[in-house]
């Protein structure tokens, strides 16, 4: 009963945060709301028994991503212009997509059902075998680093690629800025 109350409170705060982010034109506020959204979702993840994911979401979603966005705001602009086109077409697209997704959930098993296909598959094996095969308390870590170690290796590859991409995109930023200034030390237009 208490859990349902907490869930309802968290859900309503999440939805309100997202809706205010739609309306707000001040980008600093939007970024802060995105951070709050991540933190609230981390709370919800704790009630869904995903402690590891909640930690990661709080650190990465609310922490790093907010810092990166603030950095971008510092390098670009702070205010959003009012868009010239009417929002009716996007609204229709979103409503149709949402209706399709909700139609898809109608056949899904109930929330928390112990006999749903997701629970009867390979997960029971992981829980049964990881204590004596891997021997560490945290099953999520055991699966992440051992059973699905290649996934994690691939993830490292993705992060490395993204890092290289960011460096290539922003590498010469300061040099280009200095060159672009008419009264800069080089004195020539980029």
């Amino acid at each position: 009963m208490i859990e349902t109350g907490i869930n309802i409170a968290l859900f309503s705060m999440l939805v309100v945060t997202a809706l205010v982010a739609v309306r707000l034109r001040h980008l600093f506020g939007v970024v802060m709301l995105a951070g709050a959204f991540s933190l609230l979702s981390a709370l919800l993840l704790v009630t869904l028994d995903a402690a590891d994911v909640a930690f990661t979401e709080a650190a990465v979603g609310a922490g790093i991503s907010t810092v990166l966005m603030l950095g971008t705001l510092a390098l670009t602009s702070r205010r959003e212009k009012i868009p010239s086109h009417r929002p009716w077409l996007p609204l229709v697209v979103v409503l149709v997509t949402g209706a399709a997704i909700i139609y898809g959930t109608l056949d899904m098993p109930d929330f928390g059902a112990p006999d749903s296909p997701a629970q009867t598959g390979v997960a029971a094996e992981y829980i049964a075998r990881s204590p004596h095969e891997i021997g560490i308390p945290n099953i999520v870590t055991a699966v992440l680093a051992s059973y699905r170690g290649y996934d994690t290796l691939g993830e490292v590859g993705v992060v490395f690629t993204a890092g290289v991409g960011v460096l290539l995109l922003l590498g010469g930023l300061r040099a280009r800025r200095r060159r672009g200034r008419p009264d800069g030390p080089d004195g020539e237009e980029g």
């Binding site: 790093i64 999520v140 699966v143």
Partner: peptide, 24 residues
């Protein structure tokens, strides 16, 4: 079920990588 947790941990990290690329 620990399996969705593992998959989403990977997805969060990949998500921040793509976000940083988009911001760049």
């Amino acid at each position: 079920n620990p399996l969705p947790h593992v998959l989403i941990l990977t997805a969060i990290v990949v998500g921040i990588a793509t976000t940083s690329l988009a911001l760049a």
